[in-house]
């Protein structure tokens, strides 16, 4: 019986200790750091100040926030438009290839996004597959500048994040009761009405989960703007990375990520309001 006690309380203590020490406390430290002052010799020092946040209210930073928002929003929308029909078709598919197809979506979900970004470069670069093919077909004579611009960043982001939209959608749509769709059709609803009134509301949790999994990383995977945008596109992730590792202004970098974390919290609250505790099912795919 003593070992039972140890098993239960030991496990609970262990997981709480770990998450407190390496997740909650560090996040708290970021928040504190964002209210401290910057110094060249100590990285962070007293006194407490609001100046980091005041400093962010500057046209340069506001522009980066705005651009990050547009790029991430555009990427999320594209992933949703491309991913929803894809997830829907696969979820409703009745073939023996189904588990193979699902595996083919899971693989890009888990494999290195850096390697997949690099693979995209080999496709887009001046002597890459697309340009070579177009030249070979005599459609173009000079290589198109496909790399190092905003479009390349967007392609890279969608390429990387589409699986993160598809997987939660797939899990959600799989659980959708097909009889409800049939019932709506039997009762005279056309395809569009059935989609709008039955399918869409029932798959909203999957949509929201997918959007969170795409929107936030789209702003912060700093190596995609770096590699595919040729460092011309600066998004939130690049800004934070720069403040921490180049400019060495930790308080300012912390302030940016606090604002970013607030955005995450807002999205989560919207999500929870729509879900009421069914969250884990979406993610346990």
């Amino acid at each position: 019986m003593k070992s039972d006690h140890l098993l239960k309380h030991g496990s609970i203590t262990l997981i709480w200790f770990w998450l407190l020490a390496f997740a909650l406390i560090p996040f708290g430290l970021v928040t504190i750091a964002s209210f401290l002052s910057h110094s060249d010799s100590h990285l962070i020092q007293l006194p407490f100040t609001l100046s980091n946040y005041v400093q962010l209210n500057n046209i340069v930073y506001l522009k980066i926030f705005e651009e990050s928002f547009y790029v991430a929003g555009g990427c999320t929308l594209l992933c949703l438009v491309l991913g929803y029909p894809f997830a829907y078709i696969i979820a409703r598919l009745q073939t023996r290839f189904r588990s193979l197809l699902i595996l083919l979506i899971i693989i890009p979900f888990w494999t290195s996004s850096l390697i997949r970004s690099y693979a995209m470069i080999t496709l887009l670069k001046p002597e890459g597959l697309i340009n070579s093919t177009l030249r070979w077909l005599h459609i173009i004579s000079q290589p198109l500048p496909l790399l190092f611009n905003d479009t390349a960043v967007m392609i890279g982001l969608v390429y990387n994040l589409l699986p993160f939209m598809v997987l939660p959608l797939l899990t959600n749509i799989e659980r959708l009761d097909g009889r409800l769709v049939d019932a709506a059709r039997d009762l005279g609803a056309n395809r569009f009405t059935t989609f709008r009134k039955v399918i869409l509301p029932l798959t909203l949790p999957g949509i929201l989960a997918g959007c969170i999994l795409v929107f936030l990383p789209a702003m912060t995977i700093f190596y995609i703007p770096d590699l595919l945008g040729g460092s011309k596109t600066i998004l939130l992730g690049n800004l934070i990375q720069n403040q921490f590792l180049v400019a060495q202004n930790w308080p300012l970098g912390s302030a940016i990520s606090v604002i970013f974390t607030l955005l995450l919290i807002v999205l989560l609250v919207i999500y929870w309001a729509n879900m009421r505790g069914r969250m884990q099912e979406e993610l346990s795919a």
């Binding site: 560090p26 430290l29 969170i212 702003m219 992730g237 990375q241 990520s257």
Partner: peptide, 13 residues
């Protein structure tokens, strides 16, 4: 759900 970069800087601090 939280993006990697937030955990990265939090642990760095």
């Amino acid at each position: 759900l939280s993006p990697d970069i937030v955990m990265g800087i939090a642990l760095l601090i």
